[in-house]
Nucleic acid binder design. Structure first.
Length: 562
RNA sequence: GCGCCUGUAGCUCAGUUGGAUAGAGCAUCGGCCUCCGAAGCCGAGGGUCAGAGGUUCGAAUCCUCUCAGGCGCGCCA
């Protein structure tokens, strides 16, 4: 909404330069920054333009500010007046009619309000969650999923073409270990054998469940005929377990409101297809590989890494990193202009390594963006809860989902910057009480819907789009404040997308609800005054629309009743 | 030891990317339902922005150093 004002100012600058009122040529103008001041009395918008321009002009700041202020006032009927304040800010005061126009536009756009085209249809890939299919998703994955999915929604709204992708790490040691873990449990539980269970194997209860399941699925004779040698026994267990885990993960995510466009199998797409070995050959041709102690190394130190990395181990197995080289190269080949990885913060040491791949192939490193997600500290009524997959004691996404629900979870996970620690208290998230912020916003929506229902009973019905004659009834400061806040929604969506910071949405929505609730408490929407009632109903409608849209981007429901 | 992240009210965090007198929520205390949803509202107290320098019209924000906490530093993923 500040865009129109910005245009006006840029025109003013160019014109002033053309007629000689400014000596600075248009090519060296500072970029025009419009702010919405946080203080009352500083106008609707303000700009620091004069402070940046004055040194170039070689004139006093206030003189330049006054000159520009006068011209801005004259340039648009929407501008009431401009004031020069403080060290040289130009504070711009707009007429009420400007804001009525903003409200009308929001109502007209409806559910499409908030959508912009700054992404210009650029292809973006967001890879997130990508948990190994070696166990159920835990609470950390839930945060990752919330951030990734909301970021995808926000970027779509901002006009990017987004592909959501889950990388399935279904080759290598971890899934092998899972298969072995299940096999050992099976031997123990269904063959009555005494087994030594290695400490670094998966110990969770779900491993035993898998052992049960496999014994039900397969004829015991088939399993019995498996020779004692592990190498042959494992594939059946491994595939079975991996598939079962993946199925569970997909179901968890679906119930959490997250759908992926692509499930990318490491085994199928990278290993079996020969993409990994092909990529290694290319690296070899470029001279970045060498052999040492029976392993094949990638000289990532050429690209800022602090040590070289193994691609093929001495035992002939490929490393996870080998796959990742091929995977990231493939992402670039698929034509994405931006590739976003959402990683747990414990992976940050991995970043330079992956960037080395881009550099080695001469790819623009700027296409890779990594969002780090800090750990979630889970508490119940303030008491810490244990985490950690290997220990077999972890809180799963499913448990929390069943207990507190999708809405509270998704909202809570976006109440903090991704790279900040997050305290998540189960008792609080569950509470249907004022200290639970998700209800504060949802309640606002339900309340507005209720008001509109009441209005309809009284015979006040909204139809079509509001004209300025109708909206001119909205004169209260509180009403204009709500419109102004509604007017920044597009900008919030854009900034969330561009800065990869979807958490901005939760703050925005809390602020919006924080403006509406007090307004409601002090003023009647539905009253004897028909004209005023109509105008206020339009205001309500716009607020509800934006809340619904915002919650929708977060993957949180906007209930009509609660 | 090296690298990344963090340090703002009692607690949990914002702070429009360098702007004007640093803001919310929770917690605490005191008020508000004959009237559209009290899951709400109104009011009060609370600060050496970890510390020290520097950059400039101007710093919570940028640079350097120190202190404190978290994470990472595998032929694991």
């Amino acid at each position: 909404m500040s865009g129109r004002i910005k245009d006006i100012i840029m025109n003013v600058l160019e014109e002033a330069s053309a007629v000689g009122a400014l000596s600075t040529p248009p090519c060296s103008f500072p970029s025009v920054i419009i702010e919405t001041p946080k203080k009352e009395g500083f106008g609707d918008f303000s700009t620091n333009l004069a402070m940046l321009l004055a040194p170039l002009e070689g004139r006093p700041v206030r003189e330049v500010a006054r000159l520009l202020g006068d011209k801005i006032t004259g340039a648009s009927l929407d501008v009431l007046r401009c004031e020069v304040a403080g060290p040289g800010f130009i504070n711009i005061f707009l007429k009420e009619s400007y804001w009525h126009g903003v409200l009308a536009e929001i109502v007209r756009k409806g559910g499409a309000y908030g959508d912009t085209d700054i992404g210009k249809g650029k292809k973006v890939q967001i890879e997130f969650v990508s948990a190994n299919p070696t166990g159920p998703l835990h609470i950390g994955h839930a945060r990752n999923a919330s951030v990734g999915d909301t970021l995808a929604n926000v970027m779509k709204a901002a006009g990017f073409e987004v592909t959501k992708e889950y990388y399935i790490n279904d080759a290598g040691l971890q899934v092998y270990t899972l298969g072995e873990s299940v096999r050992l449990r099976w031997l123990e539980m269904h063959c009555g054998k005494k087994v030594e269970f290695p400490t670094d194997y998966y110990k969770g209860e779900y491993v035993k469940e898998l052992a049960d399941e496999i014994s039900r699925t397969y004829d015991s004779e088939i399993l019995d005929r498996i020779p004692a040698g592990q190498a042959q026994a494992v594939p059946l267990f491994q595939e079975f377990a991996c598939e079962a885990m993946l199925k569970m993960i997909k179901k968890d995510l679906q119930d959490f409101g997250v759908e992926f466009d692509v499930w990318y199998s490491e085994k199928e797409k990278l290993r079996d297809s020969g993409l990994v070995t092909g990529t290694m050959e290319k690296l070899r041709d470029k001279g970045f590989l060498y052999e040492k102690e029976g392993a094949i190394w990638f000289r990532t130190t050429d690209f800022g890494d602090d040590k070289d990395r193994v691609l093929m181990k001495a035992d002939g197995e490929l490393t996870y990193f080998a796959s990742d080289c091929a995977y990231h190269l493939d992402k670039v080949k698929r034509g994405f202009s931006t590739v976003i990885n959402i990683w747990g913060a414990d992976h940050h040491g991995y970043e330079t390594r992956v960037r080395a791949v881009f550099k080695a192939f001469g790819c623009d490193e700027g296409v890779l963006k990594i969002v780090f997600i800090q750990l979630v500290a889970l508490t119940r009524g303030g008491v810490a809860m244990a985490m950690g997959k290997r220990e077999g004691e972890f809180v799963t996404l499913r448990e929390v989902l069943d207990e507190v629900g999708k809405d509270a979870m998704r909202f809570f996970f976006l109440m903090r910057k991704s790279d900040a620690h997050l305290d998540f208290d189960l008792e609080l998230a569950k509470k249907q009480a004022p200290e639970n912020p998700v209800y504060y916003v949802q309640y606002c929506h339900a309340r507005i819907m209720s008001i509109m229902g009441f209005a309809e009973e009284k015979g006040a019905r909204l139809s079509g789009e509001p004209g300025l004659e109708v909206l001119k009834e909205l004169k209260l400061k509180e009403e204009l404040d709500i419109i102004k806040h509604l007017g920044t929604f597009e900008e919030v969506v854009e900034k969330s997308a561009v800065h990869l910071e979807p958490y901005r949405l939760t703050f925005y929505l809390r602020e919006l609800a924080g403006l509406f609730h007090p307004y409601y408490n002090r003023n009647r929407v539905v009253s004897e005054n028909a004209a005023l009632t109509l105008a206020r109903l339009f205001l309500c409608k716009a607020a509800a629309t934006v809340i619904r849209k915002g919650l929708g981007l977060l993957g949180v429901s906007a209930p009509v009743k609660m």
